[in-house]
């Protein structure tokens, strides 16, 4: 049974490269984090910074030319990267489920929704008969506020929001301990975004599972999260509780991200962050952020900063806070 004393997911020093002709693209480069039971954790960072790759590595779904170079992924006490094939297959979805980034294209276009959920339930041999599985699917659809008839429908007959809900229903089919939702609302319009997000949170609370929520900006998702991890150029640069990250961000990149949030009061767009994220084929030496950082020092160009706790429960990878370079 579930051992509540240990974290649901512990990732250590994860490294994933995509091998191009000109060398490795360092999509994820030494990322470590822990997801606690019941927690809602958000990953945030510009698109292309390695969020999806990190999550796919957790599921061990990296395909060539990508390769997991290093690291440990401890899911519910077991290392996913060391599992046998069959063990891995059975672990997927029963312990960890995914609401994928491209939910629009993640449903098999020629299978009815019910069949796509049913085969998932049946293949994991949870002792359910087909009838029980079908009944369960109807209650799942109900839980994500989809009418019963959706079960008999094909993906192309559903709107974007409905597809997304169907994906959420599918993710919860086996009551996993951890659900990863990769930009679950980014392709939807704003009104639908809010409703889908509420459904997702509601379902997660009902199951009592943990949730990793990925987003490319600080928008919508923030209010519902417990903790946030900020990624930049394949590295985790800051981790902390939501209020801390918002009110007192440590890392200059986080500060810039928050500064670039559109402010409702001033009714104008944030300025954005000057410059572009680095090309991950040969990232800058030292701190990857230094070419865009206002506070860059000599040490930043030479030494890679380490993710360390600089305030209670708030970690950052930045030389500014090492040896009290700057008062906090």
């Amino acid at each position: 049974m579930i051992d509540k004393s240990q974290p649901v997911l512990k990732v250590e020093d994860l490294q994933v490269f995509y091998w191009s002709k000109r060398g490795p693209i360092r999509a994820v480069d030494g990322v470590s984090f822990t997801i606690k039971r019941n927690e809602r954790f958000g990953f945030i960072g510009e698109s292309g910074c390695g969020k999806t790759t990190t999550m796919m590595a957790v599921l061990r779904l990296i395909k060539p030319p990508g390769k997991i170079e290093n690291g440990r992924v401890i899911l519910d006490g077991q290392d996913v990267l060391k599992m046998e094939k069959e063990e891995l297959r059975l672990t997927r979805w029963s312990k960890i489920a995914l609401v994928p980034q491209g939910a629009m294209n993640s449903l098999n276009p020629i299978m009815r929704i019910t069949d796509q959920i049913e085969d998932t339930i049946m293949t994991h041999d949870v002792g359910a008969t087909r009838e029980q599985a079908r009944a369960r699917i109807l209650s799942l659809l109900d839980m994500v506020e989809l009418p019963e008839r959706v079960a008999r429908m094909y993906p192309h007959e559903l709107s974007g929001g409905m597809k997304q809900r169907a994906c959420i229903a599918m993710a919860t089919a086996l009551e996993p301990q951890l659900i990863i939702a990769d930009e679950p609302t980014s392709a939807l319009d704003v009104v639908v975004q809010k409703a889908v997000m509420q459904t997702l949170i509601g379902v997660q609370e009902r199951l009592g599972s943990s949730l990793i929520l990925i987003g490319h900006d600080m928008g919508l998702t923030a209010q519902v999260l417990d903790r946030i991890g900020v990624m930049y150029a394949g590295k985790l640069v800051e981790v902390g509780e939501v209020q801390d990250i918002y009110k007192r961000p440590l890392h200059p990149y986080t500060q810039a991200l928050i500064g670039s949030l559109p402010s409702l009061k001033e009714k104008k767009k944030g300025g954005g962050i000057p410059g572009l994220p680095p090309f991950l084929l040969n990232p800058p030496a030292g701190c990857v952020f230094h070419p865009r950082c206002q506070h860059a020092m000599d040490v930043c160009r030479q030494k890679v900063p380490v993710l360390r706790e600089h305030r209670p429960n708030q970690l950052a990878a930045c030389h500014l806070y090492e040896e009290s370079n700057v008062p906090i």
Binding site: W93, S94, A97, L98, S106
Partner: peptide, 11 residues
């Protein structure tokens, strides 16, 4: 994407 998801589903 639906092939990746099929694999993620543990089929």
């Amino acid at each position: 994407d639906y092939l990746t998801l099929a694999e993620a589903k543990g089929l």
